[in-house]
Design a protein around this nucleic acid. Structure first.
Lengths: 218, 218, 218, 218
DNA sequence: ACATAATCGAGACGGTACGTCAGGTCTTTTT
DNA sequence: AAAAAGACCTGACGTACCGTCTCGATTATGT
């Protein structure tokens, strides 16, 4: 899916502005302001006016380019993720660690996720985005495609590799497997039902792999 | 925990009103209006003013007894749940089915949950409440104690019964087990990442019990 | 006019309460609270609820006996005036000073009025009552009859005495004369257009008596 | 005094809005609505919300430009007066009639004032404004400067002219003279103590000029 | 002397309006 | 032509009081 069709999904405006004349400085300022503010005041008190004021930008500049508060947030995270990836050799080549030991690799990755969710800035941002996703199916679809999708691909790739190595059965539903690992983590984080620690990540990986009935003697 | 301490957690007001003089008719009208409206207009467009108008009640009567929109929603669901339980022999005696066959029983229960989440009225209500819980830690605690807590107790009881019957290992983390069943279901529902069907429920139960590595030869 | 007919004018209630059972303590408390509060917070922020709270009285006790905020204020001033008169030999016998020298006597009385209007408590009270009178014709009539009326009688009596003594022409409109003295004073006070001083009172009396054209050579 | 300093007196807001971008249409609509409503429902039931609704304007647009209900009323009257003056040769050139006969001229003017106060719309408006002036000293000052002030100047000019013509003594306090004529009229009107007629105006002028002691033989 | 009925304090209730905040649109001026 | 600025209409917020209405808990007779 290319940018044009994405814009079609995102935008509700008739007289589409000309992206070529867009001010990159304003775009960056808005995204940064949104990210900072959601970390400072939380989702509930985040306002478009606040973002505009913080970014030193007219409100219309936001409304011109984004259809909703959630879209700005979404874009902020997307940009952030892209910048993060740029540190490495590029997003396309990114992959989860594959040492051959599935359990060890999963623990590594889930520990990293736990750490991210513990950062208060990312916590605020992710919660805000979660709210938007729950509320707005269109944004949820966008999220699934642009943010969650690429990540899920990497996860599935790692699991498929394990499947090919005979460490997972051929008939395992890999999408469900992803949910059973990262989905459970996400629920626990959203509900704050237990502290997110490395130990919890480890336990989660072990239990998901072995099942509730426990490890078989292999 | 008794009502007094619950009220202490819920209320932020100084001059606490006298619950003895509370109008039960208004309380019911507000809860019903909130439940109906969240189903009709969705969470984003739900307003206290709207609830008050629909219920034929002054705004102050809502603010007098609930600290936030989320608390009203929460109470609406709680009341609904209580009424639901009253249909049977009473909430106290409620228990999950226990035929001795854990897998079968879990499938029964998760299928029922799937059905509930498919009802558009409950869907709207639960999404609204989820948003509030994500946003407001105080409400999350209340939710954990009053709504999720009792349900979780029943789930844990069923799992413990299986543990005692030797169908689950003694060292299984039962709280994690609950998250691995219902938490995954909740994530899938929140993200709308796949259709919620009875088959999905069955697959989920099977996978969670056996683990991603698949069933062992026992 | 007796109390019964006054009550008939004042009250709008159907089931008239029994005055014999009325709590004198509450009545006093309400009147005092009203008087104190109007001095403290001014007319704009004076509320029935505030009076009730300050008086330690239920709101209904106010609504039962007075038809409006203005009526309470009016009653407070009336009671106060009555108590003031009781210090002397009684309201009925009260009279303005009559030394035979009209100008001197008028100056004495107007200086006293100036002093009263300078007291912040009476100032607040009188302003509040003025507002009510301007707004509510019924209350204005009541005021004219019960408060302004008796005072005006005394003033007219003093002027008539001067008339009989040949100090004022027979055809002088005495009501207008009263307005020309006390009415001008009231306007100046209401508008705060100049400081109210004894000198001003003197000047006013002199000018009103002699006319703008100045004293004739008699 | 220029507009800037007037605004400084009137406004209590921090982030002063930019008057250059003000909507003249909204301003007119608000003033007209206020004037009409005060005539229809009276001062007591006049509300900012009502004015906004009638004017088809957001409440904030009123709060942005006026500090209080009274200020709106005040402005409405001011605008009306300005429009009234524009019918003639302009406000600057306005002057009271000066035929050389002071008594005749004063009677003419006071009769006109009587007529104005008899118009129910102006009556309602003026009563409302009077209430605000009594209550709010800041507004009283504004009134004294912007509405009463200019009128008083004209009155004083006419009286000074009479003084120079030898029709009034040099030492007459002209401000007091104004109060003795228009102030008495105002009191009578506010209290509704007698019907306002042309005859009353004539009597008032005669009595004020000649004094209560009556005309001297000149 | 006691039953009876009304007043009392208290305050919850359905309302209206307050003054504020933000949403999303529109217009003006600057870059 | 986009951007900064911000006025505009709209709608909801949470609060303060309005005047009415129930609640027990005192009185205060009147048989």
């Amino acid at each position: 899916m290319r940018l044009a069709s994405l814009a079609a999904m995102t935008s509700r405006q008739q007289n589409r502005p000309n992206p070529a004349r867009r001010s990159e400085a304003s775009r960056q300022a808005i995204l940064t302001a949104a990210f900072d503010l959601v970390g400072e005041v939380g989702y509930a008190r985040l306002s478009i006016e606040g973002i505009a004021a913080r970014a030193g930008v007219g409100k219309q500049t936001i409304y011109r380019w984004w259809p909703s508060k959630g879209a700005v947030l979404f874009d902020a995270l997307l940009t952030l993720a892209a910048q993060g990836s740029d540190d490495a050799t590029g997003a396309a080549d990114a992959a989860l660690p594959d040492t051959g030991d599935l359990e060890r690799d999963l623990k590594t990755v889930l520990r990293a996720t736990v750490e991210e969710l513990t950062d208060p800035r990312l916590d605020g941002m992710m919660r805000a985005l979660s709210v938007e996703i729950i509320t707005d199916p269109a944004l949820a679809a966008l999220y699934a495609e642009r943010l969650d999708g690429p990540m899920r691909k990497l996860k599935l790739a790692r699991l498929r590799s394990a499947q090919q190595a005979g460490q997972l059965p051929q008939d395992t539903d890999l999408d469900l497997a992803v949910d059973m690992l990262w989905g459970v983590l996400r629920t626990t984080w959203l509900d704050r039902s237990r502290p997110l620690t490395a130990e919890y990540a480890d336990l989660l990986v072990r239990t998901a792999l072995n099942g509730l009935r426990g490890p078989a003697h292999r």
